[in-house]
Nucleic acid binder design. Sequence first.
RNA 1: UCCUCAGUAGCUCAGUUGGUUAGAGCGGCGGACUGUUAAUCCGUAGGUCGUAGGUUCAAGUCCUACCUGAGGAGCCA
Length: 479
Amino acid sequence: MTRSKVVELLNNGNAGDSVTVYGWVRTKRGNKQINFVALNDGSTINNLQVVVDMEKADEAVMKKVTTGAAVAVSGTLTESQGSGQNIELNGESIEVLGEANPEKYPLQPKRHSLEFLREIAHLRMRTNLFGSISRLRHAMIFAVHEFFNSKGFINVHTPIITASDAEGAGEMFRVTTLDAKNPPLTEEGEIDWKQDFFGKATNLTVSGQLEGELAAMAMGEIYTFGPTFRAENSNTTRHLSEFWMIEPEMAFYDIVDNMDLAEEFLKYLIKYALDNCMDDLKFLSQRLQQEEKNKPQAERSMELIEKLEFVLANDFVRLTYTEAINILENSKPNKKKKFQYPVEGFGTDLQSEHERYLVEKHFKKPVILTDYPASIKAFYMKENEDGKTVRAMDILFPGIGEIVGGSQREENLDVLEAKMDKMGVPKEEMSWYLDTRRFGSAVHSGFGLGFERLMLFVSGMTNIRDVIPFPRAPKQAEF
RNA sequence: UCCUCAGUAGCUCAGUUGGUUAGAGCGGCGGACUGUUAAUCCGUAGGUCGUAGGUUCAAGUCCUACCUGAGGAGCCA
C-alpha cells in the first residue's frame, strides 16, 4: 500500500478509502475501549485523528504509542462522529517505527515558551507553531523565485567566500585554513595572508550586491537569494549572524522603477502567503492574539491576516528624507522632547524611534524613504543634482523597521571614483567593479530584502531567531 | 558592546522582614470512565534553588564575580 500524506487525506479523502499514513504522534487520549491518536506528518497544521478500538488492538503496541513516537497506521477512512474534524482514520493496524520515551521526550502536549523551544531547536519543528513557520518559510522561498522568474529575472549565485572588504556592510567572518595557534607571519610580524588557502585574506560574504551588479550589467535583470554573514555583536530580535537575503539588481532601472519593483514584490509575497498558507496563517494569528491579550490595549497590533490584507490594499507612502525630517521636527514627541535622540535638521541619522514614529504613528502604513544625505549612505549610491543627497530608498515596515534597503547605483565612473577616494574605499582592489562603469555603463538599481524580516512580518513572530530553523547569533551556533 | 530584568521539579511559575522537612499548575507514571479534541476525575513519583566565592548561628532569599537567557539601544537586512 502506498503512503498517503495527512494533508491529502484531510482535503480529498473519502470515507471508505483504505489508506496508510506515516507520522508522529501529537497526543493520545481515551479509555480501555477506545483511543484517539492525533497524528501529524508535517504536511499540514491539522492532525489526522486515528481511532483505535482497544478491544482489537495489541496492548503492548498501543503502550508505545506516546507523544513524539513515529508510527505507521493502516486503516479505513470514516466520517468522524466527533466534532473537531470531518474525517478520521479507523486504525486497523498500527506499527511503532520509533519510540519516544515519554519521561524524556521534551515536547509535551502543552504550551511551551519560545525561549525553551529555542533551546531544543532540533525538535521544535515538531510543534504546531514551528511546523507552520517552516511551511510558510518554504512558501515564501518558492514565491520569491516564482515572482522573479515570471518577470524574466535571472537567478545568480554570487560567491559566499569573498576577498573584498570594501562593502562597508559590517564586521566579517574570516575564512582561513591557517593554523590559528601558529599562523605564518610577515617580516613586520603581521599574519601573512599570502600563505593562506586563497593567497589573500578572505571572508564570508556580507552582500552579493557588487557581484549582482556585474551580472545585471550583462543579463539585464537578475536576483540573488543566498546566505549572508555578519560578525556584528548584535543581540536583538531583528539581527542574525547568518541570514538569507534577496538582492535584485536591474540594468536600466532608476530609483522609481526600483521602488515600484520592491513594492510589487513585497505585495506579491504577502498575497502568496494569503492565497496558499491560510491554515497556517490562521494558526499564527490565533497564537498572536493569545500573546497580545497580555499587552495593554494601546500596544496591541492588528490581527495578522487583517494586517496582511491592509498592506496589500494600500499604496506604500513615499517621501524624501528631508520631508521625513520635517514631519519629525514638528511631531509631538520631538516638541515634548520625548525622543531619546532629538531630530536636528538635515543630516540627522534616523533612529529606530524616529522610523517607528513615522510608520506606526504618523502614516500607519509601510513607508518608503528616499533621497538620504550622501554622508550617511554607502559610496555606490547615485548622487542627486543637489550634490547633497543620494538616490537611496529604505522601506520601513511596522514592528520591524527597515525591511528593504536599496538605491540607484552611481553609474558615472568619475563621480564614483571621487566618492571612493573621499570615503576611503580602495579603488585598486575594486577595479573589477569599476569596469562596469568603464565599459558600457548604464543607469541601474537594486535592493536587498532581509528574508527573515519578511518572515517576521508575514508570520507575526517578534523574534527573528524563531523564523529560521537553526539561528546563528553571538554565542549561538548549536545544532 | 551598553542599559534593564531574569535563572527554583521535565515545562510554566510561587516562595513574606534571612529561620524547621522548598510548594502549585501542567506534563510523566498508576487507576477510573464507551467518542475524546491541550479530554475529565482520583492517586503518585519527581529538586545540587545557574556556577564559584563571601557575609551570617542560619542563605532559594543578602553581597561580589562569572555564565546563560529575555527585552530595549547601537550596527543593519
